[in-house]
Amino acid sequence: MCVGLSARVVSIDKGTALIDASGVKRKVSAELLEDLEPGDYVMVHAGIAIARITEDAEKETDKIMEALHDGNGTGDH
């Protein structure tokens, strides 16, 4: 339902962030995330930065697969 785009914050100005996703730039609202800084990665939906991205997708799935393999999987990440 919700097309999201992961992008890098280029600059911040009064609640608006300029974001970059493979050379494609757009201004989005940064009002819903505290203390965003240039260089942070964010998830953008419909013109609003809705979350910080803390890791790249590959590392994350590797960790999950390791956890499944170790037989522990119900813990909270």
Binding site: A51, I53, E60, H77
Partner: peptide, 10 residues
């Protein structure tokens, strides 16, 4: 069960 498989964002 419940598992968060998207912790880098969620």
């Amino acid at each position: 069960f419940f598992l968060n498989c998207y912790p880098r964002v969620v």
